[in-house]
């Protein structure tokens, strides 16, 4: 099975080093006593303490979390509907436009999306008086618009590999289309939808550019706060914050990944056993 040449292996190792070395260094320097971020001055956790006393960062993190959760939920609903329509409804009228609209936000430069949404919100406020000013509402709407595209792609490609006869079988046994969706399709594609939710959450949690355009006074999300701090130079408490975020994501992903691998292994074993038992 091992067909990799030395060149490929070397490139792979180099690639992973390139991806992880900066993160590892950042984690290391978060435990640096010295204020000069890159000069080692002994081990310390004082920056973590400072981080937790920084009301501005904590407030921004909480705001970001709220927006990310609302966005993820809304984007998942919209993206699932769009994915369902694209994967299952054949050639309905307006399908090409929906395909274009649903995938364009994936690659659209953020400055364009951000600018255009802000101009829309301003125009809407002038025309109908809503949304009044800019803040959580406008940020959430903007995030939903670009992150639903990711959910759409995830759901659509999951449905493309799902045997359509499962849904037909349920219908054949007497379930109406809406019931088929909730009893059969939804439970089976739930892992994909969950992945889509997490993706939408992360995208929103991480977004700086679009947020900067559509945010208003008093609603600075975490990336906005970090960006303004970083522009002024490196600061050790940002290292600490980054470390916490990386560790949280890494822990979550590892546990989830291991769980999935274990499930798969158990399943494979059961499949083998079932085949063996029959012979």
């Amino acid at each position: 099975m091992n067909r990799r040449s030395h060149f490929v292996t070397a490139m792979m190792v180099a690639g992973f080093l390139f991806l992880y070395l900066p993160i590892v260094l950042m984690i290391a320097f978060s435990f640096n006593e010295s204020r000069l971020v890159t000069v080692w001055g002994g081990f310390s956790t004082k920056w973590y303490g400072e981080l937790f006393r920084n009301q501005q960062i904590l407030g921004a993190a909480w705001l970001s979390f709220k927006i990310a959760a609302m966005n993820a939920t809304g984007a998942t609903v919209l993206g699932t509907l769009a994915g369902l329509a694209l994967a299952r409804f054949g050639h309905f009228c307006g399908r090409p436009l929906l395909t274009g609209l649903a995938t364009a936000p994936l690659v659209m430069p953020e400055v364009i999306t951000g600018l255009s949404l802000l101009l829309l919100f301003v125009a809407m406020e002038q025309a109908i008086g809503w949304p009044e000013g800019r803040g959580i509402t406008t940020i959430t709407i903007a995030h939903m618009t670009f992150s639903m595209a990711y959910v759409t792609v995830v759901v659509q490609s999951r449905l493309a590999t799902l045997d359509e006869s499962l849904e037909e079988a349920a219908m054949d046994l007497g379930a109406r289309p809406a019931k088929v969706f909730f009893l059969i399709t939804l439970p089976i594609i739930l892992p994909a939808i969950l992945a889509g939710w997490l993706l939408a959450f992360t995208l929103s949690w991480d977004d700086l550019v679009i947020t900067s355009f559509v945010t208003g006074p008093g609603s600075s999300t975490l990336p906005v706060v970090i960006f303004s701090k970083v522009r002024l130079g490196v600061s050790p408490d940002i290292n600490a914050l980054a470390t916490l975020l990386v560790l949280a994501v890494a822990t979550f992903t590892t546990v989830f990944g291991l769980y999935m691998i274990r499930q798969q292994k158990r399943r494979d074993l059961e499949v083998q056993r079932a085949i063996a038992a029959n012979e």
């Binding site: 006869s165 499962l166 219908m171 046994l173 007497g174 379930a175």
Partner: peptide, 29 residues
């Protein structure tokens, strides 16, 4: 529509619902 016909079908792929036990699959209809 298919859900109101007195007709049932056995699919080539069997189309057993993967998230339901044998008992639940059979009871579905």
């Amino acid at each position: 529509p298919p859900y109101e016909r007195p007709v049932n079908m056995m699919f080539q792929s069997y189309a057993l619902f993967p998230h339901m036990s044998v008992q639940k699959n059979v009871a579905f209809g």
